[in-house]
Design a protein around this nucleic acid. Structure first.
Lengths: 189, 189
DNA sequence: ATTGACCCGACTACAGGTTTACAGTTTAGG
DNA sequence: CCTAAACTGTAAACCTGTAGTCGGGTCAAT
């Protein structure tokens, strides 16, 4: 049994949002405490989880309710939900990358770019924008996948030696992150 | 020079939206006709293009204005914007896939799934949900990448012969995921 | 000069929240 | 036990971004 703020925090939502969901009947707490506090059960929590999954797709709340209230079962449904979640995860990843770009664009720190921007300064910039090492690797992977030529040119413009460039680009290929499955190395089949 | 509705249509926006952008100062037409009609120049159009690119990331309009009004130049900026656009396109692609899933989930047609669902019915289902042949290929690629085992099991459950399954999965691997592509379709968040 | 397709500004409505206001409740520390 | 902080409740106002409606003006072509 969770109180409203507790539950909200588990999903990084605000209390107000859950109040709202209660008001519109999308997620009603299964019980109330003696003092009339909302009490959410584990089942409620599960429902909220699905709500959030659907919400991430941009679906309207009333449509979500429609789907949820026509409680379907079946393999296909489960599969589709799984796929939906996976797509959500992938999108979230790309979104994070975008966030970083936006931070860079918004920070105004790019003014210094025309002048001597070298590898260290660039790394510092990305770090300041909240990038972890993993994020940076991801960045290179994306960059390499989307615009190999620009990637090359960019690395060169940072004054990074040829050999290092080749290495980074090589690594970017092997890591091929979000769509994994290099048939060579994929053991899952 | 474009009038307001003309320009709006080029970006699949409503006239109201551009009126709003004008009101808040995000996008002011560079001129007015004799009859006081708003007249947008090519430069205005370019600005709107950037606005839409940023908008697709979920950024608030005032933040977009902040970025746009600190008119930056430079290679890094251009590169970042390009990357941003590419991420937008990728996300749009994934979102289209999600839309299809949501349609399937919402159509209630899945109730029939427990019973005899075969290849033809499944294809008809997907087609009814607005999937083109390309979309279906993409679907297999995604499915194979994310859950190879489930993909196999699923194809098998449709009563598809072994050889055909192997072929589909093989194709899914070779196709990889599609590169840049055009940023045509999208909706808000 | 009428028709149809535009435009104007001003307004309303909507989703999906968020904020504010104010009162009652729980809980942790001293 | 007392008190302060941190919670809870309801209700209503507010916010952003967008779509739609209104009465009226404009314009090109027939």
């Amino acid at each position: 049994m969770f109180t409203i703020t507790r539950l909200a925090r588990q999903f990084s939502l605000s209390r107000s949002t859950l109040l709202y969901y209660d008001r519109i009947g999308l997620l009603r707490p299964s019980g109330r405490s003696r003092a009339n506090y909302r009490l959410y059960t584990a089942a409620d929590r599960r429902r909220l989880e699905r709500i959030c999954d659907y919400r991430r797709t941009g679906m309207a709340l009333k449509d979500i309710e429609a789907i949820l209230s026509s409680d379907m079962e079946g393999t296909a449904t489960k599969l589709l939900e799984k796929q939906l979640g996976a797509l959500n995860a992938q999108i979230a990843l790309l979104r994070r990358q975008q966030q970083i770009i936006l931070q860079l664009l918004g920070s105004g720190r790019l003014k210094a770019v025309g002048s001597g921007l070298n590898r260290d300064k660039w790394v510092a910039l990305l770090r300041a924008a909240g990038m972890s090492d993993d994020d940076m690797m991801q960045w290179h992977v994306q960059f390499e996948n989307l615009f190999p030529d620009d990637h090359q040119a960019f690395l060169h413009s940072l004054g990074i030696p040829k050999d290092d460039i080749a290495q980074i680009r090589e690594a970017s290929h092997n890591a091929s992150s979000p769509p994994p499955s290099n048939p060579e190395t994929d053991t899952r089949l």
